[in-house]
Write a protein that binds this DNA or RNA. Structure first.
Length: 427
RNA sequence: GGAGAGGUGGGAGAGUGGCUUAAUCCAACGGUUUGCUAAACCGUCGUACUGUUAACUCGGUACCGGGGGUUCGAAUCCCCCCCUCUCCGCCA
């Protein structure tokens, strides 16, 4: 949510930001409604002030034995008029809010302007020592689907039988490898980057979804339990960020770093056929998510740090990756700035998105009403929120299986995971 | 699913129609005292919107879980809903 006052005072800047994000510009309507709103509000408040003044007089008049009938009759009329004004105010506010809710966050000034993913900017690339692109071509290389089937560690067909396509089943050492990966990532962030581990609810209410900005725009993309009006989380960002909804934090509590593993559920409505085989697009996947609640002036420094935290996982696993700065047109609804981390898939011969690290500035905090008390000024202000996948296991699993396969089609378990799996090779 | 209790400021917690400007305590902030720390004492201390201003300056309005109602006037009375806790039932 943007600050209405900011929109009122900087309409041109807001319009530009919205347009650069390929979203619908409703600034003119918002400003018009805001004008109506304030006009009605001042009329209503003036009458209320009158009402309060008179009410305060009544006990005195009664004590003095004066007749209050005329005043009561007049005040009755004032009360009716107030009710009328407040009703029209309610209507205007409703319209205004339904527009405001759809206004995206504005891109940070450092974000390149662009229409689509094609205009994202590569910031850096990291390759393990001795790695060369295309070296794989000398030997037959199996993709993750073939490997999973051959080794009996992944079963997409049975997942489809049980639930539907896009619900993978991990078996035996495949399941152990997945579990090892999750444990490794959690421990790594807790031990080396000072995150506090969280196991949150996997179903959340509507207010939480609104708080982090999934609702209204992405409502269709989520699984919804109608009976209880609960949503299956599309990412741990939702429950973890909402832990502090409607709270005023002490400045001394900040920054707060959380990390949590959860399964994530996405309907992926309308995306069939595109990158959809195997792990490339699933309805359920595992993700370790980092969430930061920080003071506003530190959030861009924190964005660099959270990105580095995600990268350090890939360095430990010796997986080639690159970091992209998303252009304005590819930024998500709530993000002001975002880095995507893509891992290399030798079989697909392309980069796959495995992490997204974003600064939401005060956009989510405003929606979720998360504030802190500034010690110096003793004023409350919205915090800034960030999050980053650290990381999603499915895409990462593609890179691991494909990169660590031997000529015989076995998988060597990455060194850092071996103490978690208890075995060194699959197959 | 049934019965009961409850929801008040950053936290605890009083408040049964106008003397509430929501008491009091704690926390926080400023100060006094003091070798230092602690303690004690004094003072300040809600949020949002809105108008105004050089200024968070000064004014107005709203807010006691949410929404309606009664009344000249509601934290307080009435109705509906939500949530939390306890007990019972059912179940992992």
């Amino acid at each position: 949510m943007l600050d209405l006052k900011y929109i009122r005072e900087n309409p041109a800047l807001v319009k530009k930001g919205i347009t650069n994000k390929n979203e619908k510009d409703t600034v003119d309507q918002i400003i018009e409604l805001d004008k109506d709103r304030r006009h009605i509000l001042s009329q209503s408040e003036e009458l209320k002030a009158q009402k309060n003044r008179v009410s305060a007089e009544i006990p005195r008049l009664k004590k003095a034995g004066e007749n209050t009938d005329a005043i009561f009759a007049e005040m009755k009329e004032v009360a009716d008029k107030i009710k009328e004004l407040d009703e029209s105010l309610r209507v205007v506010n409703e319209k205004l809010n339904s527009l405001l809710e759809w206004v995206p966050n504005l891109p940070h000034t450092s974000v390149p302007i662009g229409k689509s993913a094609a205009e994202n900017v590569e910031v850096r690339e990291w390759l393990p020592e001795g790695f060369e692109f295309g070296k794989e071509d000398d030997e037959p290389i199996l993709d993750h689907l073939e490997l999973g089937k051959k080794l009996g560690i992944l079963d997409f067909e049975r997942g489809a039988k049980i639930a539907g396509s896009g619900f993978p089943v991990y078996i035996g050492k495949g399941a152990a490898l997945e579990r090892a990966l999750i444990n490794f990532m959690l421990e790594h962030h807790v031990d080396h980057h000072k995150y506090t581990e969280i196991i949150p609810p996997l179903l959340v209410n509507r207010e939480s979804m609104r708080g982090t900005g999934q609702i209204p725009k992405l409502e269709e993309d989520m699984y919804h339990m109608e009976k209880d009006d609960l949503f299956a989380i599309p990412t741990a960002e939702v429950p973890i960020t909402n832990m502090h909804r409607d709270e005023i934090l002490l400045e001394s509590q900040l920054p707060i770093y959380y990390v949590g593993y959860t399964p994530c559920f996405r309907r992926e409505a309308g995306s069939y056929g595109k990158d959809s085989k195997g792990f490339l697009r699933t309805h359920q996947f595992n993700k370790v998510e980092m969430v930061k609640l920080v003071k506003p002036e530190t959030s861009y420094k924190e964005l660099e740090m959270i990105t580095a935290d995600a990268e350090s996982i890939l360095k430990s696993l010796l997986i080639p990756y690159r970091v992209l700065m998303l252009c304005t047109g590819d930024l998500s609804f709530a993000a002001a700035k975002c880095y995507d981390i893509e891992t290399w898939s030798p079989a697909e011969n392309k980069w796959l998105e495995a992490s997204s690290c974003s600064n939401f500035e005060d956009f989510q905090a405003r929606r979720a009403n998360i504030r802190f008390r500034n010690v110096e000024s003793n004023k409350v202000d919205f915090i800034h929120t960030l999050n980053g996948s650290g990381l999603a296991t499915s895409r990462l699993m593609v890179s691991i299986l494909e990169s660590y396969q031997t000529p015989e089609g076995k998988i060597i378990v990455p060194k850092v995971l071996q103490k978690y799996t208890g075995f060194e090779i699959i197959g």
